[in-house]
Each structure stands twice: as C-alpha cells, then as structure tokens.
C-alpha cells in the first residue's frame, strides 16, 4: 500500500515538474507578451496542482496536507486574477497583441 502511494506521488510530482519546465520553456520561446501569458498558466495550474497533490499523498491525512491544500486554493484563486489584471493593464498600456479579432477576420474575408 505504502509502495503504491509512493509510486503514485512520484508520478504526479514528475508530471508536475514536467509541466513546470514546459512553462519555463514556453516563457522563453513564445513570440510576444500575450502568448507568454499562456505559458505561465501551465505551471500555475497543472504544475502546482500535481506537485502539491504528490506532496499531499506523501504527507497523508495530516495538518501538513491541509496547509498544502490551502496554499493551492489560495494560488488558484489569486493566480488568474493577477494574470488577468496584468493582461488588462498591458492592453490599456497600448501593447498590441500580435493577433486579430476573430470577428474582424471573418468580416474581412
């Protein structure tokens, strides 16, 4: 049983780490600010989610797990708010995304 939990938590932590690294690569590779936002949202969701899930599996049903889950919830609530605020500020700061409005595209064709 313990072995099974260990293996499970290893898998989740490793997958989480993979998404975290992918986010890091993405933030470097993607061409402009708005696309980089997408790269950041990967480690912010599945990255922390899976790593914290793995840690919770290790900790078992304890206070540590409760705190981990609280941290996770806090980050899940504040993360998108911060991202949105950042994007909105950038948009009003006259930073033009390298993308077209879909509605515009359709009307032009």
């Amino acid at each position: 049983m313990q072995l099974l939990i260990d293996i499970l938590s290893w898998i989740t932590i490793l997958t989480g780490s993979f998404f975290v690294i992918t986010g890091g690569i993405g933030i470097l590779r993607l061409p402009d600010f708005f696309t980089r936002l997408h790269a950041v949202s990967m480690p912010d969701t599945l990255g922390i989610g899976l790593i914290i899930l793995g840690l919770v599996l290790q900790a078992g049903f304890t206070q540590t797990s409760a705190k981990l889950i609280m941290i996770f919830l806090f980050m899940i609530f504040t993360g998108p708010a911060a991202t949105h605020a950042l994007a909105k500020t950038a948009l009003h700061g006259k930073l033009k995304p390298k993308a077209m409005y879909k509605q515009d595209e359709e009307s032009s064709t």
């Binding site: 806090f74 609530f77 504040t78 708010a81 909105k88």
Partner: peptide, 15 residues
C-alpha cells in the same frame, strides 16, 4: 471597477 480584482480581494482579505 476592475471586477475580478475586486471580488478576489474581497475573498482574500479576511484570510
């Protein structure tokens, strides 16, 4: 007027 920030802040402040 920044809706998302307002509601998130309201949720988080007591915490």
């Amino acid at each position: 007027h920044h809706l998302i920030l307002r509601i998130t802040a309201k949720l988080m402040l007591p915490l």
